[in-house]
Design a protein around this nucleic acid. Sequence first.
DNA 1: TCAATTATTTTGAATTTCAAAACATATCAT
DNA 2: ATGATATGTTTTGAAATTCAAAATAATTGA
Lengths: 143, 143
Amino acid sequence: MNDARKVINELLVKLFNRILIIEHEALKEAGIPLSMNEVHVLEAIDDLDMSTMSRIAEKLHITVGSATIAIDTLQKKGYVNRKRDKNDRRRVIVELTSDAAEVLDVHDRFHDEMITAVIDDFELEENDILIDALKKLSDYFKA
Amino acid sequence: MNDARKVINELLVKLFNRILIIEHEALKEAGIPLSMNEVHVLEAIDDLDMSTMSRIAEKLHITVGSATIAIDTLQKKGYVNRKRDKNDRRRVIVELTSDAAEVLDVHDRFHDEMITAVIDDFELEENDILIDALKKLSDYFKA
DNA sequence: TCAATTATTTTGAATTTCAAAACATATCAT
DNA sequence: ATGATATGTTTTGAAATTCAAAATAATTGA
């Protein structure tokens, strides 16, 4: 296996786990009682237009039953509220509280710093090549 | 936020999860009764020289108690064996069975195909730039 | 209106996680 | 060599996380 393959594999296998662990420890130190899994639920809700239980479950690739339980504990912890959709009372809309917005802000800033650290040194042309490669990687998994 | 930042962030936030989901579904379809978490335990054991409980726990950033339980279920499923270290009988050495080796082979081939898909199109010079960028990303998290 | 569909929750079982206590073995100092 | 301390693993109890399947509730369409 040549150097390129080794480095890319190392990246895929280990880097992402390392990021998750670092983020998890940052939450712990900040006294935020959330797992990374729970932060990902908050992110999903933030991304969705109408964050119903089934859309949240679909986005996170979990069952709706699992979503119910995830939202239960986030609600107990004060990071989300449930409300019924007025047009279709079967639906539950999940909303983020201001506490959740704060957590997501911190999370966004973390990602921002991380990216800055990586791309600040690059020339514009090198940036293009990097983006090309990452897009290719990303596209490979969309298929 | 410019295009480079967006793509890199997208990659970090979503690509890894997508890979895990795809790998998990591949295991399911192959009838292998393991979660990705459990595969990562097998990988850790494979990587370690002397795979004692505490080394496995350290490598995976979990407590030794959690490692005990993880190894218990992998043992029940027939993917690992325990044996006592003869020089220090406090230590438990965990060994992979041939079933585990098979799972890791499939996992390795999956990663190989993935990498091939990404780098096949690149010129050698572009490869160097890509590796540079990925190393920078990786180094940032080693600190 | 009544059956079928859609949305969510509940249930029961298995895994995963932690911290702290319990247990076993080894090492070090006296 | 023996008693204290350190090291390695398991056990315990509690909370999260996951799934599949059953139960409940509301809507839609014939």
